[in-house]
Design a protein around this nucleic acid. Structure first.
Lengths: 163, 163
DNA sequence: ACTGTTTAGTTCAATATTCAAGTACTAGCA
DNA sequence: TGCTAGTACTTGAATATTGAACTAAACAGT
């Protein structure tokens, strides 16, 4: 924008880190999608929605909470939940407390799906991410991710805060 | 798959790391896209293609090399390069050496676009990723990414190997 | 030289995502 | 009560991505 200010270019070390990290951001979601799609017929995003519901009290959550948890906007969530509902894994009902809200509930069949799917998914996450790392690196990954997350969202410090 | 084998669940520490890392994988690309789109009217992927060409000798690269560099398949690259060509930033020509290949070349105008766009993008990468990290964490990020990358692609150890 | 196989790239149809309205409801206030 | 503003969600059109089929060129074996 302003050519009079010399940009602070990345150092060679940073460039290398950035290149590798971008690679991971491009490939890892695709790899997880592949595993989930092949073994269980769901996308990574769909799995996150099902998992998010399975952990919630009463296996029920408001759509907006779920959107926050799944790091997505409402329109996308609405489409995906619609598909999951058609497959019998989720059920939507109006919130008796507030008529504007919609509650999404995981059905029995949906819970079973999560139970069937989780082990394979965890195994994939382990083999692609945690097994190649030392324990110290796993801790660093957590710290690094949290710092980057804070830089992206200055306001929301805690993802999945359901209050 | 086989319920007789108890899956090795993630520890609490690993779960926390995983949740934060997934958040970064979902949000960071979106944040970079937003900055590039707003300030320069290109997507992150388009920028990677332009940048990949700008670094290549003669500002020219074979489509397949470029696809490897940009971590994408050929169909997607073909579409995107088509768009970039329409905007006058890239030019395609048949490879005289091998009639099957197509060479993509960055035009003068495309180079100028990269030069205009790069500072803002680097600034965004810095402020979202490297500024919040210590120097040691940047190095860890590099090492961690490389290990994960190797786990995803057992075969291709070196991204962007153009030989 | 001729045929079958592999590689490089494009195109087209199916699917998914995003952005911009639109609907239904709640809440504040005169 | 009736009026305005704001929230939660859904829907639909425009765009992008993916996967499968297709074209063209190179190579290997005869």
């Amino acid at each position: 924008m302003d050519p009079s200010v010399e940009p602070r270019w990345l150092s060679a070390e940073e460039q290398q880190a950035w290149l590798a990290f971008v690679g991971v951001m491009m490939r890892l979601p695709a790899a997880l999608d592949t595993q989930l799609q092949r073994d269980s017929g769901v996308s990574h995003f769909e799995y996150m929605v099902l998992a998010g519901l399975s952990e919630a009290p009463g296996r029920t959550r408001r759509m907006s909470d779920l959107a926050g948890f799944a790091e997505s906007g409402l329109p996308r969530l609405s489409q995906v939940v619609g598909r999951l509902e058609k497959r019998g894994w989720v059920r939507r009902s109006p919130d008796p407390t507030d008529g504007r809200s919609t509650l999404a509930t995981l059905t029995e069949s949906g819970l079973q799906k999560v139970v069937e799917t989780a082990p394979g998914h965890v195994e994939a996450v382990r083999s692609l991410v945690f097994d190649p790392l030392t324990r110290a690196q796993s801790r660093q990954l957590s710290e690094i991710s949290q710092r980057v997350m804070r830089a992206i969202h200055p306001e929301t410090g805690c993802p999945g805060s359901n209050d």
